Structures are given as structure tokens and as C-alpha cells.
Simulated assay, not measured.
Amino acid sequence: MIRRPVSARLTHEMGNAPTGNAPEGPRRADDGMLVLSYLLSGLIFYGGLGWVGDYFLQTSWLLPLGLILGLVSSIYIIIKRYGSGT
């Protein structure tokens, strides 16, 4: 059985034009590294903001909140960029 890539493209006749956000063609080999970098950067950035907030405000709950917020925002960005769109 021959497997062919499935693509769904919108045309102007369908009412919507392609946005160009999703990568065209087959997935690249380095997409896994990009996803990992999104996850790590979200955790480091928002975790760092939480750590700084904990340090200056003398609290203990901003670091875990920042880590969770960073993970959730990273997953959201990954789904928006690499989601199937169906």
C-alpha cells in the first residue's frame, strides 16, 4: 500500500485563505528539537520570573506558579504551531 501525505489546503473559493502559520510540506527532522526548546524556554522564562518575584516579595508560591504557567504557555504555542488543524 502506498502512503501519500495528506494535506488540507483552503482556497479562496472556500472562503478562507491559508494563513501561512503552519510549516509547508513534510515535517523537518529538527522539529523535535524546536518543541523541546519551546518547552525549556517557557519553563526557564516564567520560572525565572516566579523566582525573582519570590525573592523580592518574600513569597513561596510564585516559582511553582511561574513553572506551571510556563509549561502551559509552551504547550499552547506548540499546539498552535504544530497542531493538525482539524
Rank of each mutant, 00 (worst) to 15 (best):
L71N: 02
P26Q: 06
G66C: 07
A17F: 08
T86G: 13
L40P: 01
F45Q: 00
G25I: 07
Y82M: 03
N21Q: 11
Y55K: 11
L34W: 08
S37T: 14
S73N: 14
G47Y: 05
L39G: 02
I44D: 02
N16C: 07
S73G: 04
S84K: 14
S73L: 13
R81D: 03
P64Y: 10
A22S: 11
R28L: 06
I2F: 09
S84I: 13
Y76K: 12
K80F: 02
G50W: 02
G47V: 11
T11C: 09
I2V: 15
L71A: 15
W51T: 05
R3V: 07
K80I: 01
L40C: 14
I44G: 07
F45C: 03
F56K: 08
M1Q: 10
Y38T: 07
G83S: 12
D54G: 05
L39P: 01
I75F: 04
I44L: 15
P18Q: 08
T19V: 06
L63W: 13
W61Y: 13
T59H: 07
P64M: 08
D54E: 12
G42T: 02
S84Y: 10
S37A: 15
G42A: 07
M1L: 10
L63H: 02
I77N: 01
A8V: 15
Y55F: 15
D54L: 03
T11G: 13
Y55R: 14
R9V: 13
L34K: 13
L39I: 15
L36T: 11
S37I: 08
S7E: 15
S37K: 05
R27Q: 10
S84M: 12
I77H: 01
S74K: 01
P64L: 08
G48D: 09
N21T: 10
G66I: 03
R3W: 00
S41W: 11
K80Q: 09
L71I: 00
I75K: 01
